[in-house]
Design a binder for these strands. Structure first.
Lengths: 252, 252
DNA sequence: CGAATAAATTGCAACATATGCAATATAGTT
DNA sequence: AACTATATTGCATATGTTGCAATTTATTCG
């Protein structure tokens, strides 16, 4: 583990949250200002950081370019994107595609609905105990993977409906397996709800999920539930493109 | 300048082009495999790289997340985006916004037109000697900045119309200043053309440009030129939002 | 399926680099 | 102009990175 590299990457994360002065960066890393300065100089020369006219450091365009290339490289996204796009157009809602990576579920695609732009971000992890795409992927994942994710969950309460214990999450995931889809009833933001379906691959495994998200005032949970039959057709089509050959979607 | 950090960032750029094995990364960096492995392990643990099931390394989701945050942080983009979006919708063409950073011009926003998706990427630099947004920004930039950019240009020939000498570029930029807009007549890709206008800021300076891009078969240069009067209104509006108070757009 | 080959990984001592200190330069405030 | 705060640089040295050798794992071949 390279301490110097960890520090440099930590700087990148720190300056991505808001413009930061040299003094702030040194304090954040708990190193001497000359050390922080040399790391920032290296990052800047390489295009990964840049200085505003007031001296503050922000993320450089080199990161943006790499991020864009990385998004293009996500295989799952290439295959599923036309479906995600169409689902959003047809439903008018925001559609997310997320993928299991290690023991967390990460957003890999997203098309915003007509009425709103959401705070979720490609590249960020979906909350294990609230996000419906995380629930649906973990519900159908290997038990070892599921338990590891549950153990790592923070169970931070965001609203009155947030799941805040491991046992409650296990029960919820059991329900997801029974009915074949996951829900988020305002558990992260109390004015947003969504439903998610699993995507099966060639081996019949689930490592991806797709969700429909909407403001409650625009489409309450019942409205999203009513869309599940047609949503399931899309999820089936996506699954088939990933090589799934099962007979009964959502039931095995 | 931190050699270790430079190596790590070089790895990030290398693996962003296609999935790479440990052996390839070590050869690329010209270091021992154990050195490359430790750097890759550090990047992976920090979420900046990840390993595919076959052992190859690709860009991690941490980079994607940072790239998305960085895009959100670009002030120019926040202000100009509604206009860029509207311009693309109204014209049906791809619209780019680019900004001078140091001595190069970088794409900071882009909305694809109805007919096609383009290869240009937010975060990447616009070609100094061919891209119309680069020409328009440099034409109206300080002479010192312009000369530095011209000196650094590669003048690589991409098509029969590419500008390949510094003197020819200076003449081109002089013409841009005279008529008030820049053009790319298939100079990068011979089937694409575009026109670009400067954006003035509160001090009457130009550090941003906006362009309309189209396939020649869809909209030849004459068609794009014909759009300049209305395009100029948009560029004026954007300039005013950046605080410009001049009387005669494009003429001072 | 075992042998051979190639790639990946790890422990550890050497040494090259990253580090903090002190001095200096620059910017901002009173 | 004086004072304070922030940023920057040269340099000696402490320490973290490095490559080597050994080991483990994966792949290929007969």
């Amino acid at each position: 583990m390279s301490q110097t590299v960890v520090r440099a990457l930590d700087i990148l994360r720190f300056i991505s949250t808001s413009p930061r002065s040299l003094t702030e960066v040194a304090a954040h890393l708990d190193v001497h200002k000359s050390t922080a300065l040399r790391l920032l100089q290296t990052l800047s020369l390489q295009g990964f950081a840049r200085q505003l006219s007031n001296g503050a450091y922000v993320t450089g365009f080199g990161i943006i370019a790499l991020g864009q290339l990385a998004i293009d490289q996500i295989d799952a996204r290439t295959i599923a994107h036309p479906h995600v796009q169409r689902l959003s157009e047809e439903s008018g809602h925001t559609v997310h595609l997320a993928q299991l990576t290690g023991d967390e579920v990460v957003y890999v695609d997203k098309v915003d609905g007509a009425t709103m732009m959401m705070g979720s971000r490609i590249g960020l992890r979906a909350e294990t105990h609230s996000a419906s795409v995380a629930k649906v992927v973990l519900a159908f994942a290997d038990e070892a993977v599921r338990e590891k994710a549950i153990t790592a969950a923070t169970f931070q309460r965001y609203s009155s409906t947030t799941i805040v214990t491991a046992e409650a999450l296990r029960q919820e995931l059991s329900q997801v397996r029974s009915r074949g889809w996951a829900e988020d009833n305002g558990e992260k933001e109390d004015y947003i709800n969504c439903v998610a379906l699993p995507i099966y691959d060639a081996r019949g495994k689930v490592s991806m999920g797709v969700s429909l998200t909407a403001l409650k005032v625009v489409a309450p949970l019942e409205v999203l539930r009513a869309r599940i039959p047609e949503f399931r057709l899309s999820a089936l089509t996506i699954s088939r493109e990933f090589g799934w050959r099962g007979d009964e979607y959502g039931k095995h």
